[in-house]
Amino acid sequence: MDTNRLSKKIEDILNSQVTKEADAAQVYLSYGCWADSKGYGGIANYFFRHSGEERDHMMKVMQYIMERGGEVKITAIKAPPKSPKNLQECFEKTFQHEVDNTTAIYDIVNLAHDEKDWATYNFAQWFVKEQIEEEKLVMDLLDKLKIAGGPKASDESLFNLDTYLGQAPDDAPLARDASVNKPE
C-alpha cells in the first residue's frame, strides 16, 4: 500500500527547499568565515548561528516529507558565492538571499493551495512567518550599518556594530506581535 500523502509536484518542491536550506546554511557559514577573517568576531558569530538555523529549517522540511510518507532526496549544493568586498555588500547579498528564499517558500504555499494540500499549506505557514523575521533581521543589519556610516563607517562604528551583533537576539520583533503597550 502506498502511504505517500504528497503529490509528486509537492514532494519535488519540498525536496528543492531542502537543498535551498542547505545552500543557505553554507552561504551563512562562508560569510561567517569571511567576517572572522576581517576581525568581525561578533558578525561571524551572527552568521554561524544563522547557518545552524538554516540547517534546522532543512531538517524541518526533511522531517515533514518523511512524516507524509514521501522520500527525501539529498542533492549536491553549489559552492558559496565569492567573499564579499565589504560589510555593505555582505549584508546586501544576505538580504537578497533571504528574498530569494521567501519567493521559494511562496512557491510552496501557492502549489499547496492549488493542489488543495492543506497539510502542506499549513506546514509552510511557519516558514512564511520565519521569512518575515529573516528579512527583517537583515533589513535591521542594513539600517544599523547605514547609521554607522555605510561603506565609509569608521573603525569605531564597525567595532560597535560587531559587538552589538555578537550579542543580538536571533529573532526580530514582528508587526503581528506589536501592541500599544509593546510597539516592538
Rank of each mutant, 00 (worst) to 15 (best):
K73D: 00
P80E: 06
T3H: 09
D100R: 15
F91K: 09
E53D: 10
S83E: 02
A168H: 08
R55I: 00
K116V: 06
K93I: 00
G166S: 08
A112K: 06
K82H: 08
D140V: 07
I147C: 10
A124T: 03
N4D: 01
L29V: 03
D117V: 08
N4T: 01
M59W: 00
D170W: 06
I147G: 10
G39P: 02
W126T: 04
Q125C: 07
D100S: 15
S51W: 07
A79H: 12
K136M: 12
A175S: 12
F95M: 13
L158S: 06
G150N: 11
Y28H: 08
A24T: 02
T75I: 11
T102D: 08
E115R: 07
R176H: 07
G149T: 03
S37E: 07
F48P: 08
K146Q: 09
L14R: 07
K116A: 13
K8H: 02
R49N: 14
L161Q: 05
Y164I: 05
P84R: 13
R176L: 12
A119G: 09
E130P: 07
L137E: 00
I105L: 04
K9C: 05
F48I: 07
V18I: 11
V72M: 03
G166Q: 05
N110Y: 09
A22D: 10
G32D: 03
V99F: 02
Q131G: 06
V27W: 00
D23Y: 13
G52M: 09
G32L: 05
D107E: 14
K144F: 00
D12F: 03
E156G: 11
E11Q: 15
I108K: 07
Y164P: 11
Q88S: 15
A104K: 14
G32E: 01
K152Y: 04
A104H: 08
A178G: 05
R68S: 07
N86A: 10
Y31M: 15
I10P: 01
A168I: 05
K60F: 04
T19V: 14
P151D: 15
Q131K: 09
D117F: 08
S7P: 05
G52K: 13
A148V: 02
K182S: 14
P81R: 15
F91M: 13
P84S: 12
F127Q: 11
I147E: 11
F91W: 00
A22F: 12
A178S: 11
